[in-house]
Design a protein around this nucleic acid. Structure first.
Lengths: 243, 243
DNA sequence: CAATTGTAGATTGTTGACAATTTTAGGAGA
DNA sequence: TCTCCTAAAATTGTCAACAATCTACAATTG
């Protein structure tokens, strides 16, 4: 029997988690200042650990820190969305392909992923927006299969960004999104365990494209047309989506 | 004329720079412990800023930090080299392509890059290993043209890794490497200012492949054959190199 | 003698006080 | 009224003392 070491995180990391959640949940808004003394009081700790937590969030890009001026919650733009998704597409493709070529090694590791998918499938009917954190966690587990720790870490950072974007831009999913998402993920896992890395990458890229489209929902047709003039967006959709 | 604000860095960042240099220069070896009190004495400061500096280095992957146990200089493996280069290829391709599609905007920005190339060309004759930091800085400036700040930041982190690899694996360049490198970089800049993003990406990828080959020099033919069984390496060289 | 438990020293984690810097607000002069 | 200056308030940066934890090694047990 193995036990999970309690307290494996440092206090600063715990604090960072809580502040991050506050941002993700909307208790803290872009532009808000993070004042060390204030935070240290509300978390009942001293300024030291709070400082560290803020640095962590700063490296994640969640807050902006300027010397002697403190940190403010940063406001992501649509360009940030595009950059983050471009990174996720590129890095995810490497990881997914690597996972496929490694697959013989870890058939068993696929089980928790399938379980996660079940959760998404069953738990989120009717409330498809609740699937976002689950989906992000699924993707994180997926990338972990690639056994590339640096890529995994950066990938997880971008997941936080996406959480912010979803809240900030007010994205709404519906149940059809939800069903197709589960299907795509199942296909992807199948491709990986078949060691079919090309197929895996293809599905992955398509998945990113579809995700980006979600973020374009709030815009009008005219605006979308304008968005497609941006090189990054063009590149993201360069490869044809074969349905 | 714009001036660089003196003191624009925080003390922690300055300390991080100095410790990083100590690692890059070989004063600190992989496995060495970074003891806060010791460092605070030798840098004549208190432990607070030193702690922050260590965290910075930890996010860069230069040191490994374990709770309550302090930080040790990490020892990169060849797998790390491959992962880092895979990231640099993928992220660099995005940035370079983006730069090309933006190029009309910043013709003038190319000047400092060309100057840097001159430096490499003239200054490094006979001592090609001195070109490494210049080359890494050139590449950093190149990626900056892409105007994708997150990618730029990650890219710069990987540059530090490469510095460590070079020292740790004892890579040696010769003058022919040096000449061909300058040529490739010039071609790349030309492609960017021609807005030829496909060509730019192609040259970029080839450049990464050649760089990876440098890291394989110390190995025997048999070892190299074995290395090529690794999926990451195979993928890096998947695209044909057309000379 | 091997395995476990206890203990001292070293090191990291936390805290509150003080210093340095930035921001704010108010007032003097044009 | 507007701009510029100054002083106070707010806030971040730094420090040294203290607390908690880990490491290494000695003591104890079976």
């Amino acid at each position: 029997m193995t036990f999970q070491a309690i307290d494996s995180q440092s206090t600063a990391e715990n604090l960072a988690d809580q502040i991050r959640d506050a941002i993700l949940v909307g208790k803290l808004h872009p532009g808000d200042r993070l004042i060390e003394l204030e935070l240290s009081k509300s978390f009942n700790t001293s300024r030291g650990p709070i400082r560290e937590a803020i640095r962590i969030l700063a490296t994640e890009g969640l807050v902006e820190h300027r010397k002697n001026r403190g940190a403010i919650v940063s406001a992501p733009s649509f360009d940030d969305v595009l950059e983050v998704y471009a990174m996720r597409m590129a890095l995810g493709a490497i990881a997914v392909s690597h996972a496929a070529q490694l697959s013989s090694k870890h058939e068993p590791d696929l089980h928790p992923l399938l379980e996660k998918l079940e959760t998404i499938q069953n738990f989120c009917v009717g409330t498809p927006n609740q699937m976002i954190p689950h989906d992000l966690e699924f993707q994180s587990m997926l990338i972990a299969l690639g056994e590339l720790p640096r890529i995994k870490e950066i990938f997880d950072h971008t997941a936080v960004d996406i959480g912010v974007f979803v809240r900030f831009l007010g994205i709404k999913y519906d149940d059809s999104d939800h069903i197709s998402l589960v299907k795509r993920h199942k296909d992807l896992l199948a491709a990986i365990s078949d060691s079919n890395s090309d197929l895996a990458v293809e599905i992955w890229n398509r998945h990113i494209q579809i995700s980006v489209r979600e973020f374009m929902k709030p815009f009008s047709d005219l605006e979308i047309k304008k968005l497609f003039e941006r090189p990054l967006l063009k590149n993201l959709f360069e490869m044809e989506i074969v349905q």
